[in-house]
Structures are given as C-alpha cells and as structure tokens.
C-alpha cells in the first residue's frame, strides 16, 4: 500500500477576487480541517473511510484530503488500512516516537500492526496482508526491527515451523507457548502422565483413608474429596515440576482423570471444584478376557478363510 496518498493534479480555477489569497487561506484551512478530521478519527471507534471524511467536510478536495492524511500519518495519528478496494483510516495515539526514531513510514506501519497484536503475536503471512508490502521489503523491515530489539519472533505451538512476531518486551501468551505443557514446542506428554498419576495417587489415598469411617457416607465422601487447590498444593510440594504450575493447570490434569473414569468432579455452592477417586461400576467384561477381545483381525475371522478360531494363533498361545 502506498504510504502516501496520491496527489491528483490540480485543475486551474478562476480566482475569486473577494476571497483571500488562496495560498494563505488554504494552508490555515488545511490545518483547521486536519484538526477536524483528527477529531473525527478520535471520535470513531472504528476506521473511517473517505466517504465519512467527505460527509464531515463536503467541499474537501481530494488533493487536500491527501495532504491531510499524509500529515496525520507522519505525525503518527492514524493508521491506513485497505478495506476491499478503498482505504480506511483509524485513529491511534502517536506512540513513543523514540522507538521508531528514524524509521520511515513503512516501518512505522509494520510496527503498529505488530504492536496491535499484543502478546498473541501475528503470523508473518497475516502481517504481510495487513501492511500490503511485498515479501522482501517486509523481511528487511522485520530484520531491522528484530536487530534493534524492537520486536521478536516466537515459535507457536499451534503450528510447527510458523512464527509470530510481537513486541520485544512482551511475554508471549500461553496460547502461543502452550503454557506449562510445552517445552519449546514439544508437548511434554510424559510430564502430563506423571502429574496424572500423582493426582490420582493423592485422591486414591484420601479415599482409602476413609474406608472404615463410621460416620456415614456423606462424611466419608467429603473426607475423600479434595479441592483443586488441595491437589495443587500437594503437587507443588512434591516438587516434581520444574515450571510453576497454576491451580488451573492442575484442574486440567484433574479433568483428564475424570475422563479416565478414575475420578468424579462436583461443584460446590461457591463454585470451587471438588474431586474424588471413584471405582468403575463393572469389572472388565467377558470379551476382553478372551483373545478375541483384543484381536486386531477380528473382522476377518470367520469359518471359512485362513483366519478362524480353529487355527488362531492367539488362541493357541492363550490356551497354553
């Protein structure tokens, strides 16, 4: 996208004797109009287009409009975006100029887009679309900003090999890093499993402890239950985690226990979550006690054909 609004050639107009010399008046008019457009920008929550500007100042010439926009752009009061075929303008606070001292408009735009992405960052590709620069130019800018430690690239867990850019000083959001469960792109499956097992151990022990409780089932169940905080405390004290885990992280693990059928969750009146170990309703069913239950080729097994109960290797092995 052009950083300058193209100026259209001015057609000579006849002078009006009564009006002040066009040059002087024109300039102050432009300054005044710039202010008005700036106000308009400030007022709007979303980007405004040329149409809105014309509504505000109907007799604004395209030339002047271009001048004003460029001025405001220079001063850092707005961003220019492309919406479909037209340009739109959005107000922004002119940010610390020191950061972009000496930078040209292109860099400024790239910077502002990255800044807007906050701590979630923005993909290279999306960045390119927004600022409308070509790849090489963009890469140059990015390299420059990176070397100046203005921005940084972070690998995202959402997609391997893709990077997001964000301001250097920001802490990447957990959706990017994967939070506690990711160590540099790799999902720490073993770590998660260990936590799962430890949480279960904690709950199971609690349950065993109330086995001979004489005070009735509700008391027993309450004593066997633990809040997510309780479990978090236990796990933290175990010291098996290199990273600091939050209560919410532990809740995620506890939820996997529920999905393992090993624990049940209940919600208290105050919204806190309680967990307790539970026993399966049934013992393993008959099918999985025979080879057929774990047989990978059960579908092909029949009376005719080379896979049948009489010559089944798994059966033979199992029967020995």
């Amino acid at each position: 996208m052009a950083t300058r609004v193209k100026q259209e050639p001015v057609s000579p107009t006849s002078r009006d004797v009564s009006s002040p010399p066009p040059g002087v008046n024109h300039n102050s008019q432009i300054v005044e109009r710039e202010q008005r457009i700036l106000n308009l920008l400030q007022k709007s929550t979303k980007a405004i287009s040329d149409k809105e500007i014309l509504l505000e100042i109907p007799d604004l010439s395209p030339q002047d409009r271009a001048t004003i926009i460029n001025n405001l752009l220079q001063k850092g009061f707005l961003d220019v975006f492309k919406q479909g075929e037209k340009l739109v303008y959005k107000f922004k606070e002119p940010s610390c100029p020191s950061k972009i001292k000496g930078a040209d408009n292109e860099e400024k735009i790239v910077y502002s887009i990255i800044e807007k992405a906050g701590n979630k960052g923005i993909w290279t590709r999306d960045l390119r679309v927004e600022c409308n620069l070509d790849q090489t130019t963009l890469n140059k800018i990015l390299k420059k900003l990176e070397s100046e430690k203005v921005i940084k690239a972070v690998k995202s867990v959402a997609a391997a090999r893709k990077k997001v850019y964000m301001l250097y000083s920001l802490e990447p959001d957990s959706s990017v890093t994967g939070g506690a469960w990711y160590n540099d792109q790799d999902f720490e499956a073993e770590f998660v499993d260990v936590l799962n097992q430890q949480c279960y151990r904690f709950l199971h022990q609690k349950k065993e402890a109330v086995k001979n409780c004489k005070d009735g089932p509700i008391v027993a169940q309450n004593m066997a239950s633990a809040s997510s905080k309780d479990v978090w405390k236990y796990i933290s004290e175990l010291g098996i985690s290199k990273v600091q885990l939050a209560v919410q992280d532990i809740e995620t693990i506890l939820n996997t226990l529920v999905y393992d059928g090993k624990a049940e969750r209940s919600v208290l009146a105050d919204g806190s979550l309680m967990y307790r170990a539970v026993e399966s309703l049934l013992p393993p069913p008959g099918i999985v006690r025979t080879p057929c239950g774990v047989c990978p080729i059960l579908k092909q097994c029949s009376d005719i054909g080379s896979i049948n109960p009489n010559n089944c290797v798994y059966m033979t092995e199992w029967l020995e």
Partner: peptide, 9 residues
C-alpha cells in the same frame, strides 16, 4: 496374525 498389542484380562 500380527503381534498382539495387549493381552486379554
């Protein structure tokens, strides 16, 4: 008869 992944209970 590919090797069994798990044994029957």
């Amino acid at each position: 008869f590919p090797p069994l992944e798990s044994r029957p209970v």
